[in-house]
Simulated assay, not measured.
Amino acid sequence: MEQPINSLGFAKSPADTRVVVAMSGGVDSSVVAAKLHEEGYDVVGVTLQLYDHGAALAKKGACCAGRDIHDARRVAEEMGFPHYVLDYENKFQEAVIDEFADSYLAGATPVPCIRCNERVKFKDLLETARDLDADCMATGHYIQRMVGDSGPELHSAGDPTKDQSYFLFSTTKEQLDYLRFPLGHHTSKEQTRALAAKYGLSVADKPDSQDICFVPNGNYAAVIEKLRPGAAEPGDIVDVDGNVLGQHRGVIHYTIGQRRGLGIGGLADPLYVVRLDVDKKHVIVGSKDLLATRKVPLREINWLGDDGLLAGGERTIAVKVRSTKPPIDAILRPISDTEAEVELLVAEEGVSPGQACVFYDPDGTRVLGGGWIWRGY
């Protein structure tokens, strides 16, 4: 008699299915581990130490800081499954933090959480899960994995307010075959917290982390100055015609679209940061309409569609150019297997190099991939 498919998609009993759960110490991944353990799976919890959580860069309550490692270990003890802490500090420094600092110094606005998923969690940690003879790796991300006619597909979460697809666009088809996201179908975070309470988890009421794990209180400039001493060189604030309007204390203190804190008051109309010129040490400001962008050049594209990126040619899709806004209509024009231009049907303000542009099926929830915005027109 053929063994029925279990909830993780394997034709064997949960007890014979080993799953490594990436545990950050927060409520989401803790619930995933507890839920799978209760269902009878052979659960192994793994938490990454990504940096020295006693150092000045760390922040109490941030992802993977010392408190979170303690919380993840405590959940594993409460539920009765093994838990390991892996020192990925050097990998994280090389693959995420160094690029974050260099990107900021180059005038970009990087998204280190995507690089962490791409280069550490879904690469090195995933390989560790395979070394542990796990059948799959599960995380607490709010995104859905569905099996279509051509294999596993990535879809946005059931709860649009918690959807994390923007941060997972670079997940490859091979990785997606191995990954599981048990919370992706949940329609609210309250459902997750209710499960945490049901399982009696000590983290049931733990607040969500809002900041990048190694950036205390969202102060990017302070982190860059610590990582790259002397990087914040002063320069001129200029208008689009090159007229000097004031001085700044370092390009790293500014981002595209910024209005407040420019220190050039007394002007008739409000001005926004429209461009950063690192070579000249210029912060270029202008009127709000100059922030509007329709053409977005991309590179390092990860394509998750059924046919190849080039094979499909020009096509209509929906895109996110920032994580906090819903997808908008656009036209995708491939240039190579990893490069393309996206034309937004309605101009978007504040599109910045270093950010991601994520592709969606315009008629559904499927994530078709995405790429990195690399320069402005």
Rank of each mutant, 00 (worst) to 15 (best):
S7C: 10
D16S: 10
A22I: 03
S29N: 10
H37D: 11
Y41K: 08
L48C: 13
Q49C: 09
Q49H: 08
L50S: 01
H53I: 02
A62F: 06
C63F: 11
A65H: 04
G66Q: 08
I69W: 03
H70R: 12
R74N: 12
E78S: 13
V85R: 02
N90A: 13
K91H: 14
E94S: 13
T109E: 15
V111A: 09
K123C: 07
K123H: 10
D133Y: 09
A134S: 01
D135G: 12
P152K: 00
G158L: 07
G158R: 08
D159R: 10
D163F: 01
L168F: 09
S170K: 11
T172F: 03
T172L: 06
D177G: 13
R180N: 11
R180L: 04
K189S: 14
R193G: 05
A194K: 14
K206F: 03
I212Y: 02
N219D: 15
I224D: 06
V240Q: 14
Y254M: 10
I256E: 05
L262M: 09
A292L: 15
T293H: 05
A311N: 12
A330H: 08
E339V: 02
E339C: 12
A340Q: 09
E341Q: 07
E349N: 12
G350E: 13
S352F: 02
